[in-house]
Computed example of a mutant assay.
Amino acid sequence: MMLTADYVALMARYNAWQNAQITRAIDGVSLKVLTEDHGAHFSSILGTLNHILWGDRMWLHWFGVEDTRPEGGIKESTTLTPTGAAWSAERFTTDGRIKAWAGRVHSIDLTGDLTFYSGALGAEITTPMAACVTHFFNHQTHHRGQVHAMLTRAGLPAPVTDIPFMPEDHA
């Protein structure tokens, strides 16, 4: 699999754009609405947003960007932040780290293997770096799709998700 630094930069911009739209969509929404069980894998809008944030931080740790890994495992990931406002602040900070990392990545950095301990598997694994980075961005997109459906179900505005519609000035 050939992965390029340009792809990483594009996906980092896309991630930040999507999260900025979600931040606007949940601004001022009650905790009751954000934590309502929608029958999704991570239950609620906030639970799913927290899981994405937790996963991003875990991958940034494995990529060597973050010194410390996030607390807990997948099951606890849904409670990373207690409110929409707290999530928004942490999300903004993490998106900045992702964009900074993406700006430093060279295509050669995306070759070779990455070895890390997977709590989900309970073992150390080694897998191609390109597959890990692809999964990093795919994981965000997958779970944001679930959030999109929950926002729609709750009668809240759902973000535009098409990459070709991403504003050029959203860097």
Rank of each mutant, 00 (worst) to 15 (best):
T4H: 10
T4N: 07
T4M: 09
T4D: 12
A5P: 02
A5V: 03
D6C: 03
D6V: 05
Y7N: 02
V8M: 05
A9Q: 11
A9L: 07
A9N: 06
M11A: 09
A12Y: 03
R13F: 06
R13P: 03
Y14D: 02
Y14I: 00
Y14A: 00
Y14G: 00
N15L: 01
N15V: 02
W17V: 14
W17C: 04
Q18S: 13
A20V: 04
A20L: 08
A20R: 12
Q21E: 11
Q21M: 09
Q21N: 08
I22R: 01
I22N: 06
I22D: 11
I22H: 05
T23A: 15
T23S: 09
R24N: 15
R24Y: 08
A25L: 01
I26D: 07
D27E: 14
D27R: 04
G28F: 08
V29R: 04
V29S: 08
V29C: 02
S30Q: 12
S30V: 07
S30F: 10
S30L: 04
L31G: 15
L31R: 11
K32I: 09
K32Y: 09
K32E: 15
K32H: 13
V33T: 15
L34V: 08
L34K: 11
T35K: 15
E36Q: 14
D37L: 05
H38V: 06
H38R: 07
H38M: 08
G39A: 03
G39E: 07
G39C: 01
G39Y: 03
A40Q: 06
A40C: 08
A40E: 13
H41S: 15
F42T: 06
F42R: 04
F42M: 08
F42Q: 08
S43V: 11
S43Q: 15
S43H: 12
S43R: 12
I45Y: 15
I45H: 09
I45M: 10
L46V: 06
L46C: 04
G47W: 06
T48L: 08
T48A: 05
T48H: 05
L49E: 02
L49P: 01
